Simulated assay, not measured.
Amino acid sequence: MAELLSHVLAAYALGTVVSWRLEWVTKRWVAVAMIGALLPDLNRIGLFVTDATLESVLGVPFSVDAIHTLGGVVLLSAIGAMVVADQHRRVFGVLLAGALSHLLVDAVKAYADGAAGAWLYPVTWARHPTPNLYVSSDPAVLAVVGVTALLVWWTDRTRGEER
């Protein structure tokens, strides 16, 4: 759970900082980016439902591991953009930005074999070497991201009072 919260807080911090430069990025769009940061972890549905069950329901070959890839988040962002009433392209872009922040943060975490997952699928199956910057279960990661998000929140709040 700490890793999921870390991704959401990182998307909040990044979205809020972007909102300082782009007028159209309001709190609503920061929230959409935070939802986008959750998209890659929808592959956790595999803990409850097997791939075979999903294949029988969908009628096509399916693997939940593909959700935590570039192709998976593009597809989920497109689905998310279709369910909103308006501004489909903007929703798609903001959801995708949040999801990409998740994938990029995961690209530098520690893996046992020293190579990140094939998160660039369908572009390539290559697994790049990772710098092993952090272990996802380390509580210090959540602390750093939490403090960063708190500082961004505080700065954003004080910027609003100055206007």
Rank of each mutant, 00 (worst) to 15 (best):
M1S: 07
H7Q: 06
H7P: 12
V8A: 04
V8I: 13
L9M: 12
L9D: 01
A10E: 01
A10R: 03
A10P: 11
A10Q: 03
A11M: 09
L14H: 01
L14Q: 03
L14S: 08
G15W: 03
G15H: 02
T16C: 10
V18I: 12
V18K: 04
R21D: 02
R21T: 11
E23H: 08
T26Y: 02
W29S: 09
V30R: 04
V30H: 04
A31V: 10
M34D: 00
D41S: 11
N43M: 10
R44V: 14
I45P: 06
L47K: 12
F48N: 03
V49A: 10
V49Y: 07
T50G: 15
D51P: 12
A52L: 11
A52T: 06
A52I: 06
A52S: 10
A52C: 07
T53P: 09
E55N: 06
S56E: 02
P61F: 07
S63Y: 09
S63R: 14
S63E: 03
H68C: 13
T69G: 11
L70W: 05
L70Q: 03
G71R: 10
G72Y: 11
G72D: 05
V73M: 12
V74K: 09
L75D: 01
L75A: 15
I79Y: 07
V84M: 00
V84D: 00
D86L: 00
R89L: 04
R90S: 00
R90K: 06
V91T: 06
L95R: 08
L96Q: 03
A97T: 14
A99G: 12
L100A: 13
L103T: 08
L104Q: 08
L104F: 15
D106L: 12
D106C: 12
Y111L: 05
G114H: 03
G114C: 09
G114V: 08
G114L: 08
A115L: 13
A115I: 06
A116T: 05
A116Q: 03
T124Q: 01
W125L: 15
A126E: 03
R127D: 07
R127K: 15
H128Q: 07
H128Y: 13
P129L: 09
T130M: 04
P131W: 01
L133E: 00
V135W: 03
S136K: 13
P139R: 08
A143V: 14
V147S: 00
L150A: 08
W153H: 15
W153D: 11
D156N: 14
R157I: 10
R157N: 14
T158E: 15
R159M: 14
R159D: 04
G160T: 13
E162C: 13
E162Q: 13
